[in-house]
């Protein structure tokens, strides 16, 4: 599990996170939701040691993200954020291949190659595998980047708004894939989601944030109530149910 203890973070004088403490359960799909500026991306970056912790402590499977050697951490934790622009000319297969670096250090063996192909297949990138990244659409590039993190084969997978550029079918496919990763393979997935309904339909655990603080954490049943969502997002909603899961109507 991921243990976040008393984490605060400021950029200059602006506080982004205020004394956050949370536990992300192991082997589940956890969705991090909240309005713009709540600090979700910052929290994710801190867990993945992309930013240096200012106060507090974060442990992933007992490993302190501040002190554990980064190479070791990369075999336990993979992160993919949204705004990565890759300058080099790479094909999809070459990019996904980089996901094996923490294990193979640049010399992929047969097992690595199999995992690369598996990741490509999981994200339906088969027909695109030989294409160069700069010839793909935003959504296709997004899936290639996620495939790279999947190929890293870590117990913990952190994704920052992975559905942003994806169409309906691919977004649903990805969420189902992530749920499967957690349910059948026992991996822990932490996703920042903008569209609450994907969290409602697929997440086992919800962490809601607002203004740099945790506004609630728990299963979708308890967190995705009209009262909680209206408090966090400051917009009126109605909740209905479908297939045993809440559906949040926020469109107007």
């Amino acid at each position: 599990m991921i243990e976040i203890e008393s984490v605060s973070h400021s950029i200059g004088k602006t506080p982004i996170l205020r004394d956050i403490s949370a536990t992300i359960p192991k082997g589940c799909l956890t969705a991090l939701i909240g309005p713009n500026g709540a600090g979700k991306s910052t929290l994710l970056s801190l867990v993945a040691r992309l930013e240096t912790l200012q106060t507090g402590r974060i442990r992933v499977d007992g490993l302190d993200v501040g002190t554990t050697p980064t190479g070791k951490l990369a075999r336990h934790l993979a992160i993919q954020r949204q705004d990565t622009t890759i300058a080099t000319r790479l094909t999809v297969r070459q990019l996904v291949g980089f996901g094996r670096y923490p294990h193979s250090r640049g010399r992929p063996g047969r097992a690595d190659r199999e995992k690369i192909e598996a990741a490509i297949g999981a994200l339906n990138l088969g027909p695109l595998a030989h294409r160069f990244l700069d010839t793909l659409s935003g959504g296709q590039r997004q899936r290639a980047l996620i495939a790279m993190s999947v190929a890293q084969e870590t117990d913990y997978l952190l994704l920052d708004e992975p559905l942003n550029n994806l169409d309906m079918a691919h977004a649903r496919g990805l969420m189902e894939f992530l749920r499967d990763l957690a349910a059948r393979h026992g991996r822990t997935v932490l996703v920042v989601l903008h569209e609450v309904n994907y969290a409602a339909a697929h997440a086992d655990h919800i962490v809601a944030m607002k203004d740099g603080r945790i506004a609630g954490q728990g299963p979708p049943e308890t967190q995705l109530t009209a009262e909680t969502i209206e408090r966090v997002f400051e917009t009126p909603v109605t909740i209905t149910r479908s297939a045993g899961r809440p559906v949040v109507h926020h469109f107007g």
Partner: peptide, 22 residues
């Protein structure tokens, strides 16, 4: 360092995420 340089070319965040001592 050639393999590390390949990873470095991906950018800071990707490199750190892949466990390179950036």
């Amino acid at each position: 360092m050639r393999h590390a340089l390949d990873v470095l070319a991906l950018g800071r965040e990707a490199a750190i995420g892949l466990g390179l001592a950036y």
